[in-house]
Simulated scan of single mutants.
Amino acid sequence: MTGAPPLIVTRPEPGNTATVARARALGFDVHAMPLFAARPLEWTAPDAGDFDALLLTSASAARLAGPGLARLAALPAYAVGAATAAACAAAGLTVAMTGATDAKWLLGEMTSQKIRRILWLCGRERSALDAGDARVTALPCYAVDPVDPPPAWEKLLGAPAILLAHSARAAARIAALAGTGRAHLSLVAISPAVAAAAGEGWREVAAAAQPDDAAMLAQARALWHKGGK
């Protein structure tokens, strides 16, 4: 897109490469600037019979869970976002539902189906989930650790740019690294909760209509067109 500001992708690999490829195909001047790296954790799969369903809120859980995931394959998987659903299917899980917005919405759908015992395959750092009368058991199977920004980070943030935040931790770290002088920068968040974690002081902050790359890139395009008027 001629005249578009740089688009900065901050998520860890392998998602970073996938998002960069999608953005480049749409004509964005895109830059891979991962601020985190994901790695597996040691964990032990519980008895699948103790649960009614799996909840996965990140594709990293399915990608990094390892061989223990096979012990839980009999449970239906509920995934937040199309990328997470695709990772679940690739890992051999049966996806019963893909969340259209966020974990809160998906939990509401699960509890409305009388699902009461939920095993949440999650990251070491995570937000609290309120499932009402249902029991959500969090089982960390991966960690996402911060890494130093790539060398071009400061130069890119010195001029107008659009940044993508795929998690609340990412939004908070982007905000910390950008500092208070960020009125020339715009941010696209994967959900309203992630947008809130970015704080104030940006030129624009927008939340994707769906928790996936396609919706985030559509918002990035809208911000660019808005800024160009």
Rank of each mutant, 00 (worst) to 15 (best):
G3T: 14
A4N: 10
P5I: 08
P5W: 07
T10P: 09
A18K: 13
R22P: 09
A25L: 13
A25W: 08
A25C: 11
P34Q: 01
R39M: 01
W43D: 04
A45L: 00
A53H: 02
S58G: 13
A61C: 00
A62T: 02
A62P: 04
L64S: 03
L69Q: 08
A70C: 01
A70K: 02
A74Y: 12
A77L: 02
G81D: 06
A82W: 10
A83R: 06
T84R: 14
A85H: 04
A87H: 06
C88W: 14
A89S: 05
A89K: 04
A90R: 11
T94Y: 08
V95S: 14
V95L: 15
V95Y: 13
V95W: 13
M97H: 05
M97C: 06
T98Q: 15
G99F: 03
G99C: 06
A100W: 10
T101S: 15
A103H: 13
A103F: 11
K104D: 15
W105G: 09
L106V: 08
L106G: 08
G108W: 07
S112T: 12
L121C: 10
G123R: 05
R124Q: 07
E125H: 12
A128E: 12
R135P: 01
V136D: 03
Y142C: 01
A143P: 11
D148V: 11
P151R: 09
L156T: 14
G158T: 01
A159F: 02
P160R: 04
A161V: 05
I162F: 04
L164E: 15
L164S: 15
A168T: 12
A168Q: 15
R173V: 00
A176E: 15
A176C: 14
L177N: 02
L177M: 05
L177C: 01
G179F: 08
G181Q: 13
G181D: 12
R182N: 01
H184W: 10
L185K: 12
S186E: 10
I190E: 04
A198D: 02
E200L: 05
V205W: 03
V205M: 06
A208S: 14
P211G: 00
A214V: 03
A215V: 03
L223Y: 10
G227Q: 04
G228M: 12
